[in-house]
Design a protein around this nucleic acid. Structure first.
Length: 435
RNA sequence: GCCCGAGUAGUGUAGUGGCCGAUCAUGUAGCCCUGUCGAGGCUACGACCCGGGUUCAAAUCCCGGCUCGGGCGCCA
């Protein structure tokens, strides 16, 4: 590379650069030799640019160098920009010098520039190469925008970003399986959720906190919408009830989608995403109404049961947009979900649903320590295992509410991907631990 | 974890007892070609997941294993 530095990304060239000397850097996307003229297409993060080598205008030496290149090799090209309507994009570069920084081995694990489809599994084995396809890179550019918008929205709303431990001594709330790890002489676990820690922060006076971090689930699920390691977007707000945080959630979703539509036009087009901003306020469907819809569609759900996958799909089809399910039975929601004042069989818990899957769940939390202990016992947990958590409720705990949102689920919805593994760089699922 | 399906060149596929010394596309290599843009033309290269079994004969049928996919369950 020497003293050479990239002067422009391919997408930055315009008629203002006519006859200018530029230096571009990227991967050899295509090589086409027509005899008297050769075309190299160099690809970088922002697009592609054609390098044209007419025998009459470039040295034999340079032509020889270009023809020896393999696809996907890394090169820097210094040359003169020429506007030419025959070139894709309207511009091309007549090279003066080409530096081959890394010759790619052949054959490639799969084609980057061709039209042959490749199985997801094969692609994931060589994810670095997969990301060289712009439609794949687009998904991750959208992902970046989603996470940026989350921070923008929550920061503007006065939330403080926190980080809580991922190595913990006990199960957060029972139910799910944890990955055991070795912590010096003790057994420990990878945390399934920041739930208990963010609730403890409600006792701290920070009032409104959020965390974007990994969660780990040792469940043996193996589906298109489950991961064993994923990113959770969690908030917790003091002096708030479930309705308050549902409003935050729906407004945040709308803000994210609006932002993505504005800032990722090119990427959305590339991945053919039909994302639409939801109409607010989102429908609040009572649990009871939800099972009625399922039952009407001949999917049996009994009161007190969680909604099965076919039930979720049937209801989502009926609603057709994001929606909340509220008034869940207390017994199928975690111990920390606050029962409703007028009927304790129901809870102040909610799920946010995309027509095809759940993307978030939350609740107003129990802040009364006696009730909290009672509910732990009801759900088969021993309050003594949770002293570190319960202590925070002993010395002044305000009413509070919050939710956890699966980042990949949301990104999957926004990018119209049918497999969650498409929206995470290196998925961890039942079968895959490498790479 | 359960049920179902599938494993054929680097990639994606056709072939479901003999017609297969295995199809097509892409790729790779070489040659021709001065404006390609899914470039084109010609030539060559490259594969039946592994192990057992049935049969005169197995890519094809059976059994086991491994891997992958779909559905479900499980799942703050």
């Amino acid at each position: 590379m020497g003293e050479w530095r990239r002067s422009h990304y391919s997408g930055q060239l315009s008629s203002e650069n006519q006859d200018e000397e530029v230096t571009i850097a990227g991967w050899v996307h295509e090589i086409r030799d027509l005899g008297g003229v050769m075309f190299l297409v160099v690809r970088d993060r922002e697009g592609e640019i054609q390098i044209t080598l007419p025998d009459s205008k470039v040295s034999d030496n340079l032509s020889q160098k270009a023809s020896n290149l393999n696809k996907e090799s890394v090169v820097m090209v210094r040359g003169i920009v020429k506007e030419d309507e025959r070139a894709p994009g309207g511009f091309e570069i007549i090279p003066e010098q080409i530096k081959v920084l890394s010759q790619a081995k052949t054959p490639l694990p799969f084609e980057v520039s061709g039209n042959v489809n490749t199985d997801l599994s094969t692609r994931l084995n060589s994810r670095f190469l997969d990301l060289r396809r712009s439609e794949i890179a687009s998904i991750f550019k959208v992902r970046n925008t989603v996470l940026t918008k989350v921070r923008e929205f929550l920061e503007t709303d006065g939330f403080i970003e926190i980080n809580t431990p991922k190595m913990v001594a006990t199960a957060t709330e029972g139910g799910t399986d944890l990955f055991p790890i070795s912590y010096f002489e003790r057994e420990a676990f990878l945390n399934q959720s920041p739930q208990l820690f963010k609730q403890m922060m409600m006792s701290s006076g920070l009032d409104k906190v959020y965390e974007i971090g990994p969660i780990f689930r040792a469940e043996e699920h193996d589906t298109h919408r489950h991961l064993n390691e994923s990113i959770s977007i969690d908030i917790e707000s003091a002096f708030a009830d479930h309705n308050d945080v549902m409003e935050i959630l729906e407004e945040m979703i709308a803000y994210i989608i609006e932002g993505v539509k504005k800032e990722c036009k090119k990427e959305l087009k590339e991945i053919d995403s039909k994302v639409e901003e939801p109409e607010l306020p989102l429908k609040r469907l009572r649990y009871e109404e939800a099972i009625e819809i399922a039952n009407q569609k001949d999917i049996d759900v009994l009161w007190g049961e969680d909604l099965s996958t076919p039930a979720e799909k049937a209801i989502g089809e009926e609603i057709g947009d994001y929606y909340f399910i509220v008034d869940w039975p207390s017994e199928i929601k975690p111990f920390y979900a606050q029962p409703k004042d007028e009927n304790s069989d129901l809870s102040k818990a909610f799920d946010l649903m995309h027509p095809e899957f759940e993307i978030s769940s939350g609740a107003q939390r129990v802040h009364n320590i006696e009730l909290l202990k009672e509910r732990m016992i009801q759900q088969g947990l021993d309050p003594n295992d949770f002293d570190f958590y319960l202590d925070a409720f002993e010395y002044g705990m305000p009413p509070h509410a919050g939710w956890g949102l699966g980042a990949e689920r949301l990104i999957m919805a926004i990018t119209s991907q049918s497999n969650i593994r498409e929206v995470i760089l290196f998925p961890r699922d039942r079968k895959r631990l490498i790479p």
